[in-house]
Design a protein around this nucleic acid. Structure first.
Lengths: 157, 157
DNA sequence: TATTGTTATACTCTATAACTATA
DNA sequence: TATAGTTATAGAGTATAACAATA
């Protein structure tokens, strides 16, 4: 039954026709949903998306420097300091001076770090499987391709 | 030439194989890029993505209540207070008590609000056109469909 | 009791400027 | 001079708890 004052149904059915077509709008809503879900999936490991991503890249790239990590993660260097600190404090990665360049630090995952990453990665994969359940694999691949394309295009322009 | 200390090339070519496949990772990077770009496109109108979205929904749904707006935007009610305040202060929307429910407020766009929205929407459309240039229209539609599917699926689960 | 909007508050992510120590 | 990492700081987005007014 519509509310006579607003002429809108009591149940919320808001018209977002003008926004639906916007890629950015759709993306924001979807990303918020994923982000919130993923945070839950990572909670048992006391990881956030940011720390999980950093750990993944260090595991996969032993000897990585912080500046390289920052560039790979597409965040500014200062924002990585606390992330690296946290992973070091938890003995998930080590952080040693590079002998040939004493300004730089070399990051490496510890055995514990590799173990935690493996477990967390499995949880993330399970989460994504649930998240993307019922989604045509071709649609999924297409979406990933589209997002990659947009990201690359922006770097050029 | 590889750095002998890290055994990594000096030029940053970090391996993110383990992350590439993650929808969330790809999405985060892409969304960050879009968000930063869109903020630039909206700057001339002194709008952010959040205020633009709110304005769009009010223009399209005259008489909307704040709680409906919050639900439509998928944010918690408290986070909308300053957004609505800002739009009211700039005379882009009005905010009147609902006679039949004196707890609620009814939001409506002013003539100036509608004008600004039309102009901003044109800028956003131009921005998206640039952003998605070179992207197969079918890929774009597929990506939007995938994102919508994921968002809806999360609400169910 | 429940709901609308509000206040207060806190946490996360992000960015910029300026510093240090090295190169 | 330039670069790696740091500190300090600020801004935006988000969430929760508790409140007043009203239903």
């Amino acid at each position: 039954m519509p509310d006579p004052a607003t002429n809108l149904p009591e149940a919320v059915t808001v018209d977002d026709t003008a926004l639906r077509a916007y890629f950015g709008y759709r993306m924001k809503r979807c990303f918020n949903a994923i982000q919130a879900d993923l945070a839950q999936a990572l909670k048992p490991f006391e990881l956030r998306m940011l720390t999980f991503t950093a750990l993944a890249l260090v595991v996969e790239n032993p000897g990585l420097r912080q500046s390289q990590l920052a560039e790979a993660m597409d965040v500014e260097r200062p924002n990585l300091v606390t992330v690296v600190e946290e992973l070091v404090r938890r003995d998930l990665i080590t952080r040693d001076r590079v002998p040939t360049d004493r300004r730089a630090y070399s990051l490496e995952a510890t055995a514990a770090g590799k173990r935690l990453f493996a477990d967390a990665a499995a949880a993330v994969e399970a989460h994504e499987k649930t998240l993307l359940a019922g989604l045509d694999p071709q649609l999924r691949a297409g979406a990933i391709e589209a997002m990659h394309h947009i990201e690359k295009g922006r770097q050029r322009g």
